[in-house]
Write a protein that binds this DNA or RNA. Structure first.
Lengths: 208, 208
DNA sequence: ATCAAATTGACAGTTGACTATCAACTGACA
DNA sequence: TGTCAGTTGATAGTCAACTGTCAATTTGAT
């Protein structure tokens, strides 16, 4: 998936020790923040790089020094969080069903760390643009694959991949639905409770 | 969802009776076909309107007379097929569980009518472009909403919307997974069987 | 065959994403 | 304080999507 590769361009990550690096990190964040605000307000296509640069108080040239393309802005690295989620899935005791393992892992590694404001803004931006939808979809897909792999590893049965993929897909579907409800309540409702509710519903739905 | 609205531009649908209209319909299809071929081969972003026009034996001007934008090409109207699916869902006898109702409706109104070649080509194009992913995602979303509405109507219980949404989401997840398997087998496997298999797996996954 | 309307291609122009270059500036360090 | 590498803004230019216009061609009706 070429268009989804995260390109760090000329800005190396890590080693934010000296003033220079700290300033760069600040600039990077400022650009991202400005862009997401504008995307949420006007839509992705309707926002020009010049507008983003203006709001972030940099020149268009500088923008392209920090991000290889307009698309790169939102190709955040959720990698660390995804890693934790997968580790938590793997660490669930074996006597617990797969679906329940994913539920617990989500509750432990994701729910406590979501930022409501950022989530709402991102969701709004995504809802307005087919391109951003695609990016979100692919991120979700990456999660699905990783979670499925974690489940397979937990079981120790490589033949179960197809089944684990379905489990991961279903679990992330529940997660997505809960997120949607949460966002549409403007984060007023309890996110964790919404997720549990979704999993219970799934249970009921399959039994009859 | 502004960017996903189907704009018929200057070409009115329906009433393809006389020679002129028939020719227009043919041109329209030729452009769509050329575009999808190129998208599948080179990717969406990497394909220029000029290339599409060239392959379809028209000028770029003509291209923009048929499609308001490059994106419009793939914003096909699956409306009729979606309508049939929903009708089939509504018509399933009440003693059948929701999930099973959707499964039967899919088997009856969708599986027999898929074109393998076209599906494979489309899937390949979608896999290469974040934008096309987004379009596909939104189409899927429209399905989810419509199927959920059909389920609510079948039950006659408007309060069940949230639950029906989850059911529709899960069913379409199974459907999506099966489609993926089918495509990756190059349509060699039995599509209907893959779908049934997915639903059975879902059953097992929730129980045990 | 002929006329009016629809359709088309050629061409010129606008916009915005993105690249390349260079001179000016800023922080790190001796 | 002065030097130097790293960072920046301004400028000019490319490329492709998209718009508008006009003359040439094709089609339907008479």
């Amino acid at each position: 998936m070429m268009s989804l590769q995260v390109t760090f361009h000329q800005v190396a990550p890590g080693s934010y020790s000296d003033m220079r690096s700290r300033k760069k990190a600040r600039t990077r964040l400022a650009i991202q923040d400005a862009a997401l605000d504008l995307f949420a307000d006007q839509g992705y296509d309707e926002t020009t790089v010049e507008q983003i640069a203006l709001r972030a108080d940099v020149s268009a040239s500088t923008f392209f020094r920090y991000f290889g393309s307009k698309a790169d802005i939102i190709l955040n690295d959720y990698d660390s969080q995804l890693g934790q989620l997968c580790a938590a899935v793997r660490d669930q005791p074996l006597e617990i069903r797969d679906l329940e393992a994913v539920r617990r892992a989500l509750q432990a590694t994701w729910v406590p760390y979501v930022d409501p404001v950022r989530t709402i803004r991102t969701e709004r931006a995504v809802a307005r643009s087919a391109f951003l939808c695609g990016v979100a979809y692919n991120i979700g897909r990456g999660w699905m694959d990783a979670v499925a792999a974690a489940l397979v590893e937990r079981r120790g049965d490589p033949d179960a991949l197809e089944e684990c993929l379905l489990i991961a897909r279903t679990a992330l579907g529940v997660f997505g639905g809960a997120t949607e409800q949460w966002v549409s309540s403007e984060a007023k409702e309890d996110f964790g409770a919404l997720i549990d509710q979704g999993f219970e519903m799934l249970q009921r739905m399959c039994r009859g």
